[in-house]
Amino acid sequence: MADFPLAVNVQGDYGYKVVVVDSHCTIDEVIKTAVDQIVSVLVAPFPEEAVLRARVHGATRPLDGSLTVREAGFIQMEALQIYVEE
């Protein structure tokens, strides 16, 4: 268990934010933490049916939502995009 800062940009937001999670958090939990902190503050709520994914900045494929931060092999302040799956 360790605090792990990640840089995240939630779809629609103007820039990256730093979100602190636990290294044992899953990607889905990272998404939830970021959404809790950004949506309805800088970004309008997404439609209820929207499915949110995360990907490493620059990557095209989404990360497996069940993967933990530690398992993903991230460096601290790894940049992640959180977006609505089309």
Binding site: Q11, G12, D13, G15, Y16, A34
Partner: peptide, 27 residues
């Protein structure tokens, strides 16, 4: 926002892109 912004390690300003409908993250 609860989350602080990511700051550029050169200019010291926020790491930003395009917001809204034409969302384009920059990093």
């Amino acid at each position: 926002p609860v989350a602080p912004p990511l700051i550029c390690n050169m200019c010291g300003l926020e790491v930003t892109g395009t917001a809204g409908e034409n969302w384009q993250p920059v990093n």
